[in-house]
Design a protein around this nucleic acid. Structure first.
Length: 328
DNA sequence: AAGGCGGTCAACCGCCGGGAT
DNA sequence: CATCCCGGCGGTTGACCGCCT
C-alpha cells in the first residue's frame, strides 16, 4: 500500500518561486516559526506543497545562509568529509555553517568531482585513478577460483567494505597502530571499495556484511579478528563519547538509553563473531551516527592531521586528497 | 545572429525513519 | 503492534544562462 500524496497535486503550483511567494512564506515563518509544513501553504496563502515550502525555506529563505562562493577551506572540508561519509550531504553540510545539503551536493556534482578527476583522483573512492585501473586490470586477468579453495595469499573477491568504515574507526580512535598484517588486510579489503555502503549492485539501503566479501583464508580470519577487536574498542568509544558530548554541546548518549552501546559492546562479550559480529559492528557505526556521535567523530577526525593530511608517501594509503585542490 | 552545447542550480520526486495514534 | 503522518534525505530533473561555432 503506497502512501497517499502529501498534497493535492492538481491544486499545487510547481516550478520557480516568485518574490511574492517568498514574501508570503517569509512572513509566515517569521511570525509562526517553522514546523508542521503540511499546514504552512494553507495558512500562508500559498498554492504549494508543504514539502516545497520547507525546501524553499531551508535552501533559500532561511536566515544565516551563505550565498557567496565556496571558500578554499570549505572545498577542502567537503572533500575530506566526502571521503569519510560518502554522499551524506546533510551531514557534510552540518559542518559548513550557512551551507545547505543542496548547496554542497550541487557544488560537489558540478565542481569538486570534476576537479578531483582532473587531478587523477576518483571522486567516488577518493583513490588515485591509476590505482583503480591497476586493480581493475588485476581483476580482469585472474581466473575464477572456488572460494573454498582459496589459498593463502590468493585472490580476495572484490571486497565492498566501504572506505567510510575505515575512516570511522580512525575517527573514533578505534584503530590501534596497524600491524603489518592488518595493513595488508585493510589495503586488500578497501582496494576497490565504493565510497558508500548503499551503492548500485547491492541495492539501496541494504546492509553490507563483511563476511560477504571475505574469503575463508588467513586474510579473512585476520579481518574477522580485527573486526571483533574493533567492536571492543567501539564500545569503549561509546562510553567515552557520553562524557565528551556533555561538554561540547553535542547530543549526549543518555545513561541507559544507549541502544547503540548495547549493540556495539553488548554483543562483544557474547563473542558473536562472523556475520553477526560484523553486521552488529556496522549497525553500531550507524547507531553512533544516528545519535549524532558522528559530529564528534568528524571533529576528532578533522583534528587529527595524521589521518587525511597524509603522513604516508605511498599512493596506496590515505593522504592524497588534501591539498590537491590547493594546487590551482 | 542563431543554434548547439555544456554548466549551474533551484526544485521535484520518491523513499525512509521515527514519532504519534 | 500496526498504521498513519510528517520531516528529512539523496538522487534526479529541467530551466536558465553563457560560451562557442
Amino acid at each position: 500500500m503506497g502512501r497517499p500524496p502529501c498534497c493535492d497535486k492538481a491544486n499545487v503550483k510547481k516550478g520557480p518561486w516568485t518574490p511574492e511567494e517568498d514574501a508570503k512564506l517569509l512572513a509566515y515563518t517569521s511570525t509562526h516559526g517553522t514546523g508542521n509544513w503540511t499546514n504552512v501553504p494553507q495558512r500562508a496563502g500559498l498554492k504549494r506543497c508543504g514539502k516545497s515550502c520547507r525546501l524553499r525555506y531551508t535552501n533559500y529563505l532561511r536566515p544565516n545562509l551563505k550565498h557567496e562562493n565556496f571558500t578554499q577551506e570549505e572545498e577542502d572540508l567537503i572533500v575530506t568529509l566526502h571521503a569519510m561519509l560518502g554522499s551524506r550531504w546533510s551531514l557534510i553540510a552540518n559542518q559548513l555553517p550557512g551551507r545547505t545539503d543542496n548547496d554542497v551536493k550541487n557544488y560537489w556534482n558540478t565542481k569538486l568531482s570534476k576537479k578531483l578527476r582532473q587531478r587523477g583522483i576518483d571522486p567516488i573512492t577518493h583513490r588515485p585513478i591509476a590505482d583503480l585501473m591497476h586493480s581493475i586490470g588485476a581483476l580482469a586477468i585472474r581466473p575464477p577460483q572456488p572460494a573454498s579453495s582459496s589459498p593463502n595469499g590468493g585472490y580476495l573477491p572484490a571486497p565492498a567494505l566501504p572506505l567510510v568504515h575505515d575512516v570511522a574507526y580512525h575517527a573514533a580512535g578505534m584503530l590501534p597502530p596497524k600491524t603489518e598484517q592488518q595493513q595488508v588486510v585493510i589495503a586488500r579489503v578497501d582496494a576497490d571499495a565504493p565510497a558508500s555502503p548503499t551503492t548500485t549492485e547491492h541495492g539501496q539501503g541494504q546492509q553490507l556484511k563483511w563476511s560477504d566479501f571475505l574469503a575463508d583464508d588467513a586474510a579473512a580470519a585476520a579481518a574477522a579478528a580485527e573486526a571483533q577487536q574493533q567492536q571492543v574498542v567501539l564500545g569503549q568509544y561509546h562510553h567515552e563519547a557520553s562524557a565528551v558530548g556533555a561538554g561540547s554541546g553535542v547530543a549526549v548518549y543518555g545513561a541507559g538509553s544507549s541502544s547503540s552501546a548495547a549493540a556495539a559492546g553488548g554483543d562483544v562479550g557474547g563473542g558473536g563473531g562472523g556475520d553477526d559480529g560484523a553486521a552488529a559492528f556496522i549497525d553500531a557505526i550507524l547507531d553512533c551516527d544516528k545519535e549524532t556521535g558522528v559530529d564528534q567523530l568528524i571533529a576528532e577526525l578533522l583534528a587529527d592531521p595524521a589521518y587525511y593530511a597524509g603522513s604516508s608517501s605511498s599512493s596506496s594509503e590515505m593522504g592524497w586528497g588534501m591539498g590537491l585542490l590547493n594546487a590551482d
